[in-house]
Write a protein that binds this DNA or RNA. Structure first.
Length: 502
RNA sequence: GGGCUCGUGGCGCAAUGGCAGCGCAAACGACUCUUAAUCGUAAGGUUGUGGGUUCAAGUCCCACCGAGCCCA
């Protein structure tokens, strides 16, 4: 029984519509019917019934008299006095039901009259076609499964307020079928990635998401605290360093699809927590990882879209392998006619940056400037899938040096529609070099780069046991899903995107 | 962090600085093959919050809260 406070609290903000719904709930209960239902066995889904009706005439269906039991939410209701049509929605779609007082009986029809859009019911009956040809279930028995105490949004225009759609995704999912389709597709993409990797002998693993040292990427972490051990912990910003420890351990082909957390702004491409695929493959290098990346993305795209040629926000994108491969310095040379493969001092590079009004920070040396040129002038122009390789060593502290020019590394990033979609290296496996790279990162941190990486002594320790030459890859799953589902914002592929507290 | 745009019944939208309206849903009534069913009747609002200008503010100004887009 409700106490007085609870009653007050529950009804405090109720509007007229909600008061009426609550009154109907009470009337239903008074008729001896539970408004909250119980387990209900279905024989068919909405889609099953539509398929049974397809390619069958009205007469054939009547003769077959197929019996079916379904359940779903009432989405449309056309009451005609002693009969009614309604559309029930389940996870597979919508199916029309036809209810007549003379079939279900006066008592059952009295309950039906108290139902409205948004309520969830079970219905059993036979499949037939209306005179307009719509496959419909003629109901002989109706069961209320759940009474909805709030009304659905407008039945034709649905819910368009993006704030409400993100904050109350459950309502968005009820009334916007294309939203549901996007998230079903998201699940298929993630599943497709896993299957593709599993079929090739990769081992899926799970590593800690709370790190003592936040490493493996240039990003600010979220920090937290472990009370019992009284220690500072960070939510991981990458999976990299743990997976490479597993390569040292001999697991040779490993991957993890998991959530990482970066303490930065929110935009159409950034959410504080997002899903990352990382993969490491012993005895391979950058070239093998390029081949793998092409194969993986093209295959998953084919699987979910039926083609490797897709449209993204009105732009045709061709994901059919092989994709263009071009070095970062060459890509810059093509666009701004500067050749960074030439030897030059940090000061000469800084001068070029000033001339071209490229962002320049205090700690910047040659390689940072090359990267700024790339991000400023080239990145946005890479619409079709393009591997950019040969990143400066300063921004790649975990990648092997290029044997021909140690200012650059054996690293690539994949760009599609002007956005970074993947990041990969021939992994640095020299512990002495790795220690020096970490030390340079610490020096950058001193110089004011708060995204510089930290020294991870245990990771160095692991490398000292010997990590075989290894190719590694990271793919931002949310951006890949945006691309493959043609969604403009990362929030449209996250069920519950991060929102400011109301 | 900066710029622009937005916030009006449960939902979708209107309203030259001058009586806050329409549609859907919901209420009451009619209707046993409807398709956003239809027809009739009646109801629902402190216009995000707080200040200001004005005879008069949903509308103009300021601040704050929230959202979207663009930029950093």
């Amino acid at each position: 029984m409700l106490n007085d406070n609870q009653t007050t609290a529950d009804q405090h903000d109720e509007n007229e519509v909600e008061r009426v719904r609550r009154a109907k709930m009470e009337q239903i209960a008074a008729l001896g019917v539970s408004p909250w239902g119980a387990k209900f066995e279905r024989s068919h889904t909405a889609k099953d019934i539509l398929e049974l009706g397809e390619n069958r005439s009205k007469e054939e269906l009547d003769e077959l008299a197929i019996h079916a039991t379904i359940a779903g939410r009432i989405m449309l209701l056309r009451d005609q006095g002693k009969a009614a049509f309604a559309h029930l929605q389940d996870m597979t779609g919508r199916i029309q039901i036809y209810i007549r007082q003379d079939i279900i009986g006066e008592d059952a029809y009295k309950v039906w009259k108290l139902l409205e859009m948004g309520d969830i019911v079970g219905a059993t009956g036979t499949i037939f076609k209306t005179k307009t040809g719509e496959t419909t279930l003629k109901v002989v028995g109706l069961t209320l499964l759940t009474k909805a105490l709030k009304p659905l949004p407008e039945k034709y225009h649905g819910l368009t307020d993006v704030e409400v759609r993100y904050r109350q995704r459950y309502v968005d999912l009820i009334v916007n079928p294309e939203v549901r389709d996007t998230f079903i597709k998201r699940s298929k993409i993630v599943q497709g990635v896993r299957r593709w990797l599993d079929e090739r002998g990769f081992l899926e693993v799970e590593t800690p998401t709370m790190h003592v040292i936040p490493g493996g990427a240039a990003a600010r972490p979220f920090s937290t605290h472990h009370n019992a051990l009284d220690m500072q912990l960070y939510m991981r910003i990458a999976i990299e360093l743990h997976l490479k420890r597993l390569i040292v351990g001999g697991l040779e082909k490993v991957y993890e699809v998991g959530r990482v957390y970066r303490n930065e702004g929110v935009s159409t491409r950034h959410n504080p927590e997002f899903s990352l695929l990382e993969l490491y493959w012993a005895y391979t290098d950058l070239r093998d990882i390029m081949d793998l990346t092409e194969g993986l993305i093209a295959s998953v795209c084919q699987e979910v879209n039926g083609s490797t040629k897709i449209q993204y926000q009105g732009t045709a994108i061709d994901l059919t392998p092989s994709w263009r491969r071009v070095s970062m310095v060459e890509a810059i040379r093509e666009v701004v006619r500067i050749d960074f493969s030439a030897q030059m001092s940090d000061e000469e590079a800084r001068e070029l940056a000033r001339q071209h009004k490229v962002k320049l920070e205090n700690h910047y040396t040659f390689g940072h400037i090359v990267n700024e040129f790339f991000e400023t002038f080239v990145e946005g122009t890479l619409v079709q899938p393009t591997f950019i390789f040969g990143h400066p060593i300063e921004i790649s502290p975990l990648a092997k040096k290029n044997p021909d020019d140690p200012r650059f590394t054996d690293r690539f990033e994949l760009f599609i529609v002007g956005r970074e979609h993947a990041n990969a290296f021939s992994e640095l496996n020299d512990p002495i070099d790795q220690r020096e790279r970490f030390e340079k990162q610490l020096a950058e941190k001193e110089a004011g780069n708060d995204e510089a990486q930290e020294m991870d002594e245990d990771f160095i320790n692991a490398l000292m046991y010997g990590m075989p030459p290894t190719g590694g890859l990271g793919i931002g799953m949310d951006r890949l899903i945006m691309l493959l589902t043609d969604q403009p914002s990362i929030r449209d592929v996250l069920l519950f995107p991060h929102m400011r507290h109301q």
